[in-house]
Nucleic acid binder design. Structure first.
Length: 214
DNA sequence: ACCCAGGTGGCCC
DNA sequence: GGGCCACATGGG
């Protein structure tokens, strides 16, 4: 099965996911850090806490003490680490005067390199920010993507992050909206279906899915 | 009482 | 470059 066919099936089965679930690009950035190794449900609580206390802005995060910020984002786990990571990201944003419009004139590769230099921002988080906050045509690879492609037998086997990303980006038109939707659908399938369990009850691929067992 | 979730950095080899 | 581990909460 080709990549685009897989995408079409996912889209037909689930419908558009219209990610990222956030109100603003800045909220996407914060959410990208907060969701590291954590269920989205817990991230929602942390974001909600930040909103209630009006802490969802660069300056608020910057000038809130580590202890207080950690306490606010507590529900999403790893809260001490993530507090520092959020602040590191704010340091980067300050280079652009906290003005996302000023990021627009920068090359995607430049922004990616800069983001990867921020301690606590790895490839997936950087690419999430590039795609979902900044609308760049960068494909996000995550654990679901690996497992699902592995089980479907699509793409390179035992691939690194970069290899997998190159596979997606090389076999799809560089359309941010497509990348956006495709990754969201993969996550939907990953949560919904059976990438780790032996039984697959609802799979968009029906009985052609390698996960499928009646 | 486990296991897992929309990862990353440090340390070791 | 890969294999482990800590980081921590909430839900199954």
């Amino acid at each position: 099965m080709e990549l685009l066919e897989f995408y079409e099936r996912l889209l037909a089965f689930y419908g558009a996911q219209s990610w990222w679930p956030a109100q603003t690009p800045f909220e996407v950035m914060a959410g990208a850090v907060l969701t590291q190794g954590t269920s989205w449900k817990n991230v929602e609580k942390a974001i909600s806490n930040l909103n209630k206390l009006s802490l969802l802005s660069p300056d608020s995060i910057r000038y809130t003490s580590d202890e207080e910020l950690a306490d606010v984002i507590r529900p999403c786990g790893f809260y001490m680490v993530k507090t520092q990571r959020l602040k590191n990201l704010m340091d980067w944003l300050q280079r652009y005067d906290d003005n996302l419009a000023k990021l627009a004139c920068k090359e995607t590769s430049t922004l990616r390199r800069e983001l990867l230099e921020v301690k606590g921002i790895g490839k997936e988080t950087a690419d999430t920010i590039l795609l979902y906050a900044l609308g760049r045509p960068v494909f996000v690879i995550d654990a679901y993507t690996r497992r699902i492609l592995e089980r479907l037998g699509i793409g390179p086997t035992n691939a690194s992050y970069d290899e997998l990303q190159e596979f997606f980006e090389g076999n799809l038109p560089p359309d941010p909206q497509l990348f956006n939707e495709f990754h969201a659908l993969i996550v939907k399938l990953g949560k919904d279906a059976c990438t780790k369990r032996p039984l697959c009850l609802r799979c968009p691929l029906g009985n052609t899915c390698p996960f499928y067992q009646s």
